[in-house]
Every structure is written in C-alpha cells, then in structure tokens.
Amino acid sequence: MTRFNSFRKPPRKVCLFCKDKILVDYKDIDLLRKFITEQGKMLPRRATGNCARHQRTLAIAVKRAREIGLLPYVAK
C-alpha cells in the first residue's frame, strides 16, 4: 500500500469554460491557442482538463478557425 501511496496524483484540473462560464468561440484566437500545440495540433483532454462537452465544442471552434485561416492546420 505504501508503495502505491508514493505515487502522487496531480491536482485535478477544472474545465476553464465551465469555471469562468466562457462560451467557446472560433473568433477568440488567443484563447484557442492555449489549447493547441506549437505544431497546431489540439491538446488532449488529459492535458487541458476540459470537460467532455467543452472539449467537443472547442474542437469544432479550432476547426472553424483553421478553415477561415485564423489558425494553421500545420505550423512550420
């Protein structure tokens, strides 16, 4: 048991959009950039701590922003 306890769980993240009651919007590029890597790929939920619903809407927002040329499909 003690061996298991030596693994420390990182504190659980709360979904930013639930916490601050922000609506996911494809126009808010600065915010969207926090959820993508330098290469332009989306971060997984385990990294962002988003809830399932907001991660889903976020994915749609990122794809929309890519379509209109606000975010890259692939950077570099």
Binding site: R66, G69, L70, L71, P72, Y73, A75
Partner: peptide, 8 residues
Amino acid sequence: KRKLAYEI
C-alpha cells in the same frame, strides 16, 4: 488586415 495562418 490580418496575417493568414497559411497561404490561401
């Protein structure tokens, strides 16, 4: 005016 993320 804004820069495009990629060329279109």
